[in-house]
């Protein structure tokens, strides 16, 4: 086990290093956005003095390196800063209004929880569905079922997300009103109701991510079917399903896990279009709003969370695929 442990620790260290590098990229990129918050909020007619005063208030007049390290130090301690858009400007109010600032963390937390909920529901539907579809497609390869599954998943991944969303709304909310077309969930909502409201966006996202996972499962399994141990399993008189599930699938896990992780990361970071269509209060919309208003702390925090999610999921996938290799789990 010590070998596995060492590899895992190595991967974690690498993950942290990557996150650090990404934080530099995020900071640089965000600071290169044209215009700044002061200009965006005060508009065309603002006096240079007013802009300067807001900048000073927000610390925008500091050199970038200093701002970066202040931000990084805060982020490491869990303090992601204060949203510019929610800040009280002491220079306008005249006095310190005392701690009523809304921090980025409190702003993001509920939105992020919603996003995770949506991603989680989608994953629970999409992952078993695609792997099952992949196994069946491999089992009945080149049959009508295989072709139909391929055509269905490929056309759904090739269509724009909003289009899929509207098609689902048309069929499941308008023509057969079984699900609500708006996903305006809020705090303190019952789990059942929340789930019901989340179902349509989750189904839309399932259609988007299924193709990738299903086709990788199918390809990884078919890739193994020519190997001698699969022939051996068939020569033992096992049923085709058992050959695939028991003998091919465990050896095909590594590539499948990686594709699943990639798609889960997409569910957390790339779903803004679906959120907009269903008015789902997720982190994606918050992020886009932040960019519009040049709300630097908010944008940076979102980026950092996205990057963290990506790294964490890929790290998990790496570790799981290492563990799926019996040579590493059981050294000689």
């Amino acid at each position: 086990m010590s070998q596995v442990l060492r590899i895992i620790l190595q991967r974690i260290a690498l993950g942290i290093l990557t996150l650090f590098i990404v934080s530099i990229v995020i900071f640089t990129a965000v600071n290169m956005l044209p215009g700044d918050f002061a200009q965006a909020i005060l508009g065309q007619g603002a006096t240079p003095e007013a802009i300067e005063s807001i900048r000073r208030d927000l610390g925008l007049d500091q050199p970038p390196i200093q701002r970066y390290f202040a931000w990084l130090a805060g982020a490491v301690q869990g303090d992601l800063g204060t949203s510019f858009a929610q800040a009280n400007f002491s220079s306008f109010v005249g006095a310190d209004s005392g701690g009523s600032d809304v921090t980025v963390a409190t702003q993001i937390a509920p939105r992020f929880a919603n996003t995770m909920f949506l991603a989680g529901v989608t994953a629970c539907i999409a992952v078993p569905f695609s792997i099952m579809l992949g196994v069946l497609a491999a089992l009945y390869r080149n049959s009508a079922f295989d072709r139909a599954a391929n055509i269905f998943t490929l056309s759904s991944i090739s269509s724009p997300e909003f289009f899929l969303a509207y098609v689902l709304i048309l069929f499941l909310a308008v023509l057969n009103p079984v699900l609500p077309s708006l996903s305006n969930i809020y705090d303190g909502m019952e789990f059942g109701e929340r789930l019901q409201k989340t179902l349509l966006p989750a189904l839309t996202l399932t259609l988007v991510v299924t193709a990738h996972m299903m086709r990788m499962t199918r390809a990884a399994i078919i890739n193994l079917l020519a190997s001698p141990y699969i022939e051996m399993a068939r020569l033992k008189g096992l049923s085709p399903l058992r050959v695939i599930v028991k003998h091919a699938l465990p050896n095909a896990l590594a590539p499948i896990i990686n594709v699943v992780a990639l798609n889960l990361a997409y569910l957390i970071t790339g779903v803004v279009v679906v959120e907009v269509v269903f008015v789902y209060p997720g982190i994606g919309q918050l992020f886009v709003d932040g960019v519009k208003t040049r709300d630097i702390p908010l944008v940076q925090a979102c980026c950092l969370i996205f990057a963290g999610a990506y790294i964490l999921l890929n790290l998990t996938a790496d570790i799981l695929s290492i563990l799926s290799n019996p040579r590493l789990r059981h050294p000689k």
Partner: peptide, 22 residues
Amino acid sequence: RKLLGSRIAYVAQSAAASFNPA
């Protein structure tokens, strides 16, 4: 399928490749 494995069995050239590594 009923015969294979039970009444007729097979021993392959490379056991290392023909045993399932998992």
